[in-house]
């Protein structure tokens, strides 16, 4: 029992049945999960799912209606001062001082946490060196990507034990998103536990474990691999020359459960195991489709998320 307590004491993030509501809207309902030391944990869901509310509670900026949570073993309500010393938080909206220069912002955040840029420079070096040429520029005059890098540098300058990143890649193009995830991988190697939220389902596979969240409720928590391998339905990709009518015709087939567009193919789930690919092909030919291609497929996180929404 005491051993268990010891282990629990070092769990970086732990939520037990968190609830929060704003007037009529239930922002968070019965949220429970744990993040392990050194883990890159993703909170994945659309806008309005409750991601930001959850982050604000964990960073002690908002009180839960009920339930409890600890960060580094400290209670988010009682021990808020201790938590604020230990965590780094990068909100979704840029919230540095626009009228201070790049360097002044970083110096300010370092001094608030009783440290200096020099002391933890090795941690932020790879990120900060990209904006250092512009260190005299006002933060408000930076481009979007540079603001993001400055915000991350400021969130890291006191070497936090847990880093909270709320939608760091929203609205960012695919190339810059990839670069940002490379940065996160490096930070993870430094032993920092990272909790990151995103509405992009394709980023799920870059996390160690993920929680899928929608309408204030967690739909599933596991590794991305386990979630996709537990999809549990026959999934095929289907293509033909006219993808729009194909969607409509596939949905009319009695043995097809769901049918969604996925880039250049449609993903269909088969509810009747007796259905053969040749049967479906013959059905589609009868509907006038040409160049039909049907292949078995593995589920993606997006397939799983949509299945869980039902």
């Amino acid at each position: 029992m005491s051993l268990q307590n010891n282990i629990q004491a070092i769990i970086p993030v732990q939520c037990r049945s968190l609830h929060k509501s704003y007037k009529k809207i239930q922002a968070l309902q019965d949220i429970s999960f744990e993040v392990n030391p050194g883990e890159l944990f993703g909170i994945i869901g659309p806008d309005g799912a409750g991601k930001t509310t959850l982050f604000r509670i964990l960073t002690t900026l908002l009180l839960p209606a009920s339930g409890s949570a600890t960060v580094d073993g400290y209670d988010v309500v009682k021990d808020y001062k201790e938590i604020r010393k230990r965590v780094g938080y990068m909100p979704g909206r840029f919230s540095l001082y626009q009228d201070l220069s790049v360097e002044e912002n970083l110096t300010f955040f370092a001094s608030v946490f009783n440290t200096t840029i020099e002391e933890n420079y090795d941690l932020i070096k790879d990120i900060y060196c990209q904006i250092e040429p512009f260190k005299k520029r006002r933060a408000g005059a930076l481009s979007g990507g540079m603001k993001q890098k400055l915000a991350l540098s400021c969130a890291l300058i006191h070497r936090p034990s847990v880093l909270f990143l709320d939608e760091p890649t929203t609205g960012v193009d695919p190339v810059s998103r990839k670069e940002f995830w490379e940065i996160l991988k490096k930070l993870k190697q430094e032993g920092i536990t990272i909790l990151v939220s995103t509405p992009y389902m394709d980023e799920a596979s870059l996390c160690d474990r993920i929680a899928l969240i929608n309408n204030g409720k967690i739909l599933k928590i596991d590794t991305p691999e386990n979630i996709t391998s537990q999809f549990g339905k026959i999934l095929w990709t289907v293509q033909s020359r006219n993808m729009h009518t194909l969607l409509i015709d596939l949905r009319e087939h009695p043995a097809i459960g769901s049918c969604f567009a996925f880039g250049d193919t449609h993903h269909v789930t088969i509810t009747n195991e007796q259905l053969k690919m040749d049967d479906l092909k013959a059905y589609l030919e009868g509907k006038g489709h040409a160049d039909i291609a049907i292949r078995p497929a593995g589920a993606t996180i997006e397939d799983c998320f949509m299945d869980l929404l039902k």
């Binding site: 869901g45 799912a49 609205g171 509405p199 389902m201 929608n214 969607l247 997006e302 949509m306 929404l309």
Partner: peptide, 20 residues
């Protein structure tokens, strides 16, 4: 201009059906 940002995957697809 980025009409589907942040929208859940099902709604995102329904949105494209409206476009079609």
């Amino acid at each position: 201009d980025e009409p589907t940002g942040g929208v859940d995957p099902v709604t995102r697809r329904q949105f494209w059906e409206l476009i079609y």
